[in-house]
């Protein structure tokens, strides 16, 4: 049933390696961008708050496919941004990461913001009363506690991100689902095997992620 794998025509591990890379780069980028967005959304500066709110509501509600294809057609083919890459495969990969970060950052931001709301207001008051600046209060007192309370929701975001990397195939990034399309075209007699194989690959990636982060979330929880 899975004998198409031994034909040597499909680099399954290579494709999933691209998926893993897409996920890791996007996850790190989303975490940073989402934290910055959350900082903006709780900042005392109205302009930053306004930008954060507008950005999150706009991007979060746009389909990822549109952002993904838009980054290829808009940023690269129309405006000529290559993001420092020369090979078209690299350009596609980087554009995909950019699109994923832009999109997933909004979900990180909102998860984090709900975490900020779990930190008692007295924590920030005590920090301000001590003479810490807004940025210090946020980075030393509020965010560390907020992060600890949203490890589980962030795990959800990471799992969704892992699966959302399949959208990168829309701009030709050769990750797992891109390979799946080739397989589906060539191996019509083993369709269900192909689907099951790719699905299993994602489960192998996401199931341990969820279990591990669930354990982490219990370990780092702030006791009050």
């Amino acid at each position: 049933m899975f004998d198409f794998l031994s034909s040597g025509r499909y680099d399954l591990l290579g494709a999933f390696w691209v998926t893993v890379q897409l996920t890791l780069y996007s996850a790190v980028g989303s975490l940073i961008w989402g934290t910055l967005l959350a900082g903006m959304r709780v900042s005392p500066v109205p302009l930053m708050r306004g930008f954060g709110t507008a950005y999150v509501n706009l991007v979060r509600n746009t389909p990822l496919t549109i952002i993904m294809v838009g980054s290829l057609l808009g940023l690269y083919q129309t405006l000529g941004f290559k993001l420092g890459a020369d090979l078209s495969a690299d350009i596609g990969f980087r554009l995909a990461v950019l699109a994923m970060v832009a999109y997933t950052g909004t979900f990180v931001c909102e998860a984090l913001r709900s975490g900020i709301n779990t930190v008692p207001v007295g924590q920030a008051e005590a920090a301000r009363a001590m003479g810490l600046s807004f940025v210090q209060v946020l980075t030393l007192i509020v965010l560390p506690q907020a992060f600890r309370s949203v490890v589980a929701p962030l795990a959800n975001v990471l799992i969704a991100l892992t699966k959302n990397t399949t959208v990168a195939s829309a701009i030709g990034v050769a990750e797992a689902s891109f390979l799946m399309k080739n397989m589906v075209e060539n191996e019509t007699d083993a369709l269900f095997a192909v689907f099951a194989l790719i699905a299993l690959g994602f489960i192998v990636l996401t199931l341990p992620t969820g279990l591990l982060l669930g354990w982490v979330s219990k370990r780092v929880a702030v006791k009050r």
Binding site: G122, Q123, E125, A126, I141
Partner: peptide, 12 residues
């Protein structure tokens, strides 16, 4: 210096 009713020690 300020001391609060609910202590507000940094929990983490």
């Amino acid at each position: 210096g300020m001391v609060f009713q609910s202590f507000n020690l940094f929990a983490h």
